[in-house]
Amino acid sequence: MPKSLFWVRTDTAGSEHVVLDEPQGLTAHGVALAVDPIPYTCRYRLTLAPDWSTSRLEVDADGAGWSRSVRLERAGDGWRVRTGEEGDLDAALRAAGHPTAGLPGTDDPDRLAEALDVDLGGSPLTNTLPIRRIGLGRLPADLATGVKVAWVLLPSLAVIPAEQVYTSLGPGRVRFAGDGFTADLEVDPEGFVVRYPGLAERVDPR
């Protein structure tokens, strides 16, 4: 049966709702909203292979006067990246006093070649992908495992290669480290994030 997960952002006003199914690997579609750095809505569709490596990610983001899209698809020869853009996100960012975002996607998909996972900015769901793919719950505690990901920034939808480290801290706890940041995540028995300090907390039905 499909399942529904809902997180409330704790770093800013926002939330994420995803509906997912695990027939073989994972398929998911979700919506994320936030007001920082400017108000935006993000819609995404995610497809994972049976080994939980990412096969495809489609993301659409929009706000007042702008919209962007990025499509990532992993094939035998690397990642294919397609983008779209309407309006002017950079103008909206400048008007709000923030740095400009640049273009969506990447100018060199070959830089993503070693990535097996994706990380959608601000989305607790995508932390589950490497946790499940590497079988972190079955590894000894304090054993660090490095992964390479295609990191999709929001709201710009720029895609950059990133190195991250996941470490099991015992049942229900995982340490995440990347880009100079570290957080000890609380996860459920299936590896889905329950609490991400400084980012989000899951709200479960009563």
Rank of each mutant, 00 (worst) to 15 (best):
83 T>S: 03
182 T>Y: 02
163 E>I: 05
140 P>N: 03
179 D>Q: 13
172 G>K: 06
21 D>N: 13
47 T>M: 08
17 H>I: 07
73 E>H: 13
90 D>A: 12
171 P>R: 08
134 I>V: 15
14 G>N: 04
58 E>M: 07
28 A>L: 08
173 R>E: 03
5 L>M: 14
24 Q>D: 14
131 I>V: 11
97 G>K: 12
41 T>V: 05
49 A>P: 04
119 D>W: 01
47 T>W: 12
80 R>A: 09
123 S>N: 03
57 L>C: 11
35 V>G: 05
115 A>N: 04
149 V>Y: 01
27 T>I: 10
176 F>K: 02
201 E>L: 15
183 A>C: 07
170 G>A: 09
5 L>T: 01
126 T>G: 14
42 C>W: 01
24 Q>S: 15
162 A>W: 03
5 L>Q: 08
172 G>F: 01
191 G>Q: 10
54 T>K: 06
142 D>M: 11
44 Y>C: 10
147 V>N: 10
77 D>E: 08
173 R>C: 01
98 H>Y: 09
8 V>L: 13
122 G>C: 14
95 A>H: 12
18 V>N: 04
24 Q>M: 10
178 G>Q: 05
70 V>K: 03
41 T>N: 00
105 G>N: 02
129 L>F: 15
55 S>V: 09
194 V>C: 13
59 V>Q: 04
204 D>K: 07
80 R>T: 13
179 D>M: 15
43 R>A: 11
91 A>Q: 11
145 T>P: 00
85 E>F: 09
73 E>C: 09
15 S>G: 00
88 D>W: 08
58 E>N: 07
123 S>Q: 04
65 G>F: 12
113 A>S: 14
150 A>G: 12
110 D>L: 10
123 S>F: 06
165 V>L: 06
67 S>Q: 09
156 S>M: 06
28 A>W: 11
183 A>T: 07
204 D>C: 07
181 F>C: 07
134 I>H: 08
1 M>K: 09
81 V>R: 03
65 G>S: 13
15 S>N: 06
29 H>E: 14
89 L>Y: 02
187 V>Q: 02
152 V>N: 00
5 L>H: 10
84 G>H: 13
13 A>Q: 11
190 E>I: 00
179 D>N: 15
16 E>H: 10
58 E>K: 12
38 I>V: 15
111 R>L: 14
76 G>Y: 02
40 Y>E: 02
12 T>I: 02
13 A>F: 11
156 S>G: 15
83 T>I: 13
105 G>E: 08
133 R>Y: 11
39 P>S: 12
151 W>T: 00
165 V>H: 01
10 T>W: 06
61 A>T: 13
177 A>F: 05
189 P>S: 12
152 V>M: 01
204 D>F: 02
145 T>F: 06
42 C>Y: 00
82 R>Y: 07
189 P>D: 13
144 A>T: 14
135 G>P: 12
33 L>I: 04
203 V>C: 07
142 D>H: 14
27 T>M: 01
68 R>H: 06
172 G>E: 05
63 G>M: 06
68 R>E: 03
130 P>N: 06
204 D>Y: 07
190 E>K: 01
72 L>Y: 03
97 G>E: 12
3 K>A: 12
103 L>G: 00
